[in-house]
Simulated scan of single mutants.
Amino acid sequence: MMGRRLRANTALWSGLVMCGAALTGLVASGLPNTAPTAAGPAASARQDAGEPCPPGMEARLSDPGLPGLVPEGGELTPDQAAAYEEKLRKALEPLRSQDIAPPREVPVVVHVIQAEDGEGRVSDERVRDQIETLNTAYGGRFATGPQTTDTGFRFTLSEITRTADDTWFHRFNDHRTTIRSHLHQGGPETLNLYTADLGPGLLGFSSFPQDYAADPEQDGVVVAHDTLPGGGRERFDLGHTATHEVGHWLGLFHTFQNGCTTPGDYVDDTPYEREAATGCPEGRDTCRTRRGRDPVDNFMNYSDDACMTTFTSGQAERMAQHWAAFRGGDPRALTMTGAAAE
């Protein structure tokens, strides 16, 4: 996930912004018309050649003030978020007469990628602890009082795959397309969760449900191996990087999406927030003209794992909508819906 401070680097991603937003006709005329980008010559070449953008993603950073940590295709701009919202609205139109609810369970395939000397190995027990953490979080059992929200989502471990490869483990981002093409299992309803070494500042990243139809094999969540419960990552080893990234996989934006500007994160009951929270700040209010203090305890923020306890009812509804639109039902219908929403 990208912090607000990284929004100062929006121009660095302009090639991807223009590419991604153009898919839905939502490129604003005021966007900068720059050429070289931080995403490198390849991104500009894709644009010039008219090739499709890489799927969008959101990431979680241990320090949102450090630039250059997010993989190519990361950090959603306001225009890209609006494009995803437009896809959701279009996909929901034919479902208006149907009851929209989360599935009874989400099958999970965990792909453990480790070095050949065993570095990064994640035990079966820790994998099961991660699944339990997801179920506790999405069941609303980390929160207390009126903030308790059971989203209705439940996760079931289907399989653990193990790969020992030094290159894949240490340079996952450089090879992520190949890795996921080789390992991905199931359809849009299956959560593929990958663990590897993502470097010092990047905790994890995720695809969005709107991108499944265009690139099914790249769908899924990636987390640093030491962020799983008991992984030893200081401040971030309770398993909530996966909680956070699965939220993106189910369609949620960061609570600080769009800062203090409407429409924020497109969820009515999460207060506006100017920038990502770090640590466990108390009484933080970065949008003083807006209702409510910053949602520091929300799973879609950047707070330390120990501070994250809640989803809101609005977020639960939004995840269920994304599931119905892009992950539930007949995969062939989902493909057609996704194509129609482009």
Results as ranks from 00 to 15, higher is better:
residue 253 F to K: 07
residue 46 R to H: 10
residue 27 V to I: 14
residue 99 D to I: 13
residue 91 A to V: 00
residue 290 R to N: 07
residue 193 L to Y: 07
residue 72 E to R: 11
residue 12 L to V: 09
residue 119 E to K: 15
residue 23 L to R: 14
residue 234 E to F: 14
residue 286 T to M: 11
residue 141 R to P: 03
residue 207 S to P: 05
residue 103 P to K: 04
residue 65 G to W: 12
residue 239 G to C: 06
residue 152 G to F: 02
residue 222 V to Y: 04
residue 259 G to L: 12
residue 112 V to A: 03
residue 228 L to E: 03
residue 313 S to Y: 05
residue 52 P to G: 13
residue 208 F to P: 04
residue 265 D to W: 05
residue 85 E to C: 02
residue 128 R to F: 09
residue 166 D to V: 02
residue 275 E to L: 14
residue 202 L to G: 03
residue 331 P to S: 08
residue 31 L to E: 08
residue 141 R to F: 07
residue 126 R to E: 03
residue 74 G to P: 05
residue 154 R to N: 00
residue 231 G to L: 08
residue 287 C to K: 15
residue 108 V to L: 06
residue 281 P to L: 10
residue 307 C to F: 10
residue 57 M to S: 14
residue 288 R to W: 07
residue 50 G to N: 10
residue 338 G to Y: 07
residue 279 G to D: 06
residue 220 G to I: 08
residue 54 P to T: 11
residue 270 T to E: 05
residue 130 Q to F: 06
residue 240 H to N: 12
residue 273 E to D: 14
residue 247 G to K: 05
residue 136 T to W: 10
residue 327 R to Y: 01
residue 15 G to P: 03
residue 3 G to I: 01
residue 100 I to V: 09
residue 165 D to A: 04
residue 308 M to D: 00
residue 72 E to F: 10
residue 58 E to K: 07
residue 182 H to Y: 11
residue 108 V to P: 05
residue 273 E to R: 14
residue 100 I to F: 05
residue 124 D to H: 11
residue 23 L to T: 12
residue 149 T to W: 06
residue 320 A to F: 00
residue 233 R to I: 02
residue 320 A to C: 00
residue 308 M to P: 02
residue 267 V to P: 05
residue 270 T to R: 13
residue 38 A to F: 14
residue 75 E to C: 14
residue 4 R to H: 13
residue 108 V to K: 08
residue 274 R to P: 01
residue 173 N to K: 12
residue 19 C to A: 14
residue 301 N to E: 13
residue 272 Y to A: 15
residue 202 L to R: 06
residue 325 A to K: 06
residue 134 L to K: 00
residue 266 Y to M: 01
residue 70 V to H: 07
residue 121 R to D: 05
residue 315 Q to W: 03
residue 334 L to R: 15
residue 201 G to T: 06
residue 307 C to S: 09
residue 277 A to T: 13
residue 123 S to A: 13
residue 320 A to G: 01
residue 170 H to Y: 15
residue 181 S to Y: 10
residue 339 A to H: 12
residue 86 E to G: 07
residue 11 A to C: 09
residue 296 V to G: 10
residue 104 R to Q: 11
